[in-house]
Protein backbone atom coordinates (compact mmCIF):
# COMPACT_ATOMS: atom_id res chain seq x y z
CA UNK A 1 0.00 0.00 0.00
CA UNK A 2 2.64 2.43 0.97
CA UNK A 3 4.75 1.84 -2.10
CA UNK A 4 1.93 3.25 -4.20
CA UNK A 5 2.02 6.45 -2.20
CA UNK A 6 5.72 6.69 -2.87
CA UNK A 7 5.01 6.23 -6.58
CA UNK A 8 2.49 9.04 -6.47
CA UNK A 9 5.05 11.29 -4.85
CA UNK A 10 7.58 10.50 -7.54
CA UNK A 11 4.98 11.18 -10.23
CA UNK A 12 4.16 14.54 -8.76
CA UNK A 13 7.83 15.43 -8.62
CA UNK A 14 8.33 14.46 -12.24
CA UNK A 15 5.27 16.39 -13.42
CA UNK A 16 6.22 19.48 -11.48
CA UNK A 17 9.86 19.45 -12.45
CA UNK A 18 9.17 18.80 -16.11
CA UNK A 19 6.73 21.67 -16.25
CA UNK A 20 9.21 23.91 -14.45
CA UNK A 21 11.79 23.34 -17.15
CA UNK A 22 9.58 23.60 -20.20
CA UNK A 23 7.24 26.45 -19.47
CA UNK A 24 7.73 29.99 -20.63
CA UNK A 25 5.36 31.94 -18.51
CA UNK A 26 6.66 33.27 -15.20
CA UNK A 27 3.43 32.63 -13.31
CA UNK A 28 3.35 29.03 -14.47
CA UNK A 29 6.80 28.51 -13.04
CA UNK A 30 5.29 29.34 -9.65
CA UNK A 31 2.43 26.93 -10.26
CA UNK A 32 4.96 24.18 -11.01
CA UNK A 33 6.75 24.99 -7.74
CA UNK A 34 3.45 24.56 -5.94
CA UNK A 35 2.94 21.13 -7.49
CA UNK A 36 6.41 20.12 -6.30
CA UNK A 37 5.53 21.33 -2.82
CA UNK A 38 2.39 19.18 -2.81
CA UNK A 39 4.48 16.15 -3.62
CA UNK A 40 6.77 17.01 -0.75
CA UNK A 41 3.85 17.41 1.68
CA UNK A 42 2.47 14.02 0.68
CA UNK A 43 5.87 12.44 1.24
CA UNK A 44 6.18 13.97 4.70
CA UNK A 45 2.75 12.74 5.73
CA UNK A 46 3.61 9.27 4.41
CA UNK A 47 6.78 9.23 6.47
CA UNK A 48 4.86 10.38 9.52
CA UNK A 49 2.33 7.63 9.20
CA UNK A 50 4.88 4.91 8.60
CA UNK A 51 7.08 5.73 11.59
CA UNK A 52 4.07 6.61 13.74
CA UNK A 53 5.48 9.99 14.60
CA UNK A 54 2.65 12.03 13.17
CA UNK A 55 3.22 14.97 15.53
CA UNK A 56 6.70 15.76 14.26
CA UNK A 57 5.64 15.20 10.66
CA UNK A 58 2.66 17.50 11.03
CA UNK A 59 4.88 20.18 12.56
CA UNK A 60 7.19 19.91 9.59
CA UNK A 61 4.28 20.18 7.15
CA UNK A 62 2.86 23.25 8.88
CA UNK A 63 6.25 24.99 8.91
CA UNK A 64 6.82 24.12 5.26
CA UNK A 65 3.43 25.49 4.19
CA UNK A 66 3.96 28.79 6.00
CA UNK A 67 7.42 29.32 4.54
CA UNK A 68 6.25 28.40 1.05
CA UNK A 69 3.46 30.92 1.11
CA UNK A 70 5.85 33.69 2.15
CA UNK A 71 8.24 32.77 -0.69
CA UNK A 72 5.31 32.74 -3.09
CA UNK A 73 4.22 36.20 -2.01
CA UNK A 74 7.73 37.61 -2.51
CA UNK A 75 7.96 35.91 -5.91
CA UNK A 76 4.62 37.42 -6.91
CA UNK A 77 5.95 40.84 -5.93
CA UNK A 78 9.03 40.32 -8.10
CA UNK A 79 6.87 39.19 -11.04
CA UNK A 80 4.67 42.26 -10.77
CA UNK A 81 7.76 44.44 -10.82
CA UNK A 82 9.19 42.62 -13.83
CA UNK A 83 5.90 43.11 -15.61
CA UNK A 84 5.92 46.81 -14.83
CA UNK A 85 9.34 47.13 -16.39
CA UNK A 86 8.95 45.07 -19.52
CA UNK A 87 5.25 44.51 -20.15
CA UNK A 88 5.61 40.83 -20.80
CA UNK A 89 5.79 37.63 -18.84
CA UNK A 90 7.67 35.58 -21.36
CA UNK A 91 10.78 33.95 -20.01
CA UNK A 92 12.66 34.06 -23.24
CA UNK A 93 12.21 37.73 -23.78
CA UNK A 94 13.12 38.68 -20.27
CA UNK A 95 16.04 36.43 -19.65
CA UNK A 96 17.53 36.96 -23.06
CA UNK A 97 17.66 40.70 -22.86
CA UNK A 98 20.34 40.50 -20.29
CA UNK A 99 22.87 38.61 -22.28
Amino acid sequence: MLTIIFLTVVLLYIIGFYYLITTRNLIRILIALEVLTKGLVLMLIYVGKVTEQMATAQTMVITLIIIEVVILAVAAGIIINIFNRTDSLDTRKIFRKNK
Partner: peptide, 25 residues
Protein backbone atom coordinates in the same frame (compact mmCIF):
# COMPACT_ATOMS: atom_id res chain seq x y z
CA UNK B 1 14.22 47.43 -8.95
CA UNK B 2 16.09 47.44 -12.22
CA UNK B 3 15.41 44.65 -14.64
CA UNK B 4 18.81 42.98 -14.19
CA UNK B 5 18.46 42.92 -10.41
CA UNK B 6 14.92 41.53 -10.62
CA UNK B 7 16.12 38.80 -12.98
CA UNK B 8 18.95 37.84 -10.66
CA UNK B 9 16.59 37.72 -7.72
CA UNK B 10 14.04 35.59 -9.54
CA UNK B 11 16.65 33.09 -10.71
CA UNK B 12 17.98 32.82 -7.19
CA UNK B 13 14.47 32.30 -5.84
CA UNK B 14 13.74 29.57 -8.34
CA UNK B 15 16.91 27.63 -7.73
CA UNK B 16 16.64 28.08 -4.00
CA UNK B 17 13.12 26.62 -4.04
CA UNK B 18 14.24 23.61 -6.08
CA UNK B 19 17.04 23.12 -3.58
CA UNK B 20 14.50 23.31 -0.76
CA UNK B 21 12.41 20.50 -2.25
CA UNK B 22 15.49 18.32 -2.60
CA UNK B 23 16.82 19.01 0.89
CA UNK B 24 13.47 18.32 2.50
CA UNK B 25 13.02 15.08 0.55
Amino acid sequence: KELAALNGSFKYLLMSSIATVMILS
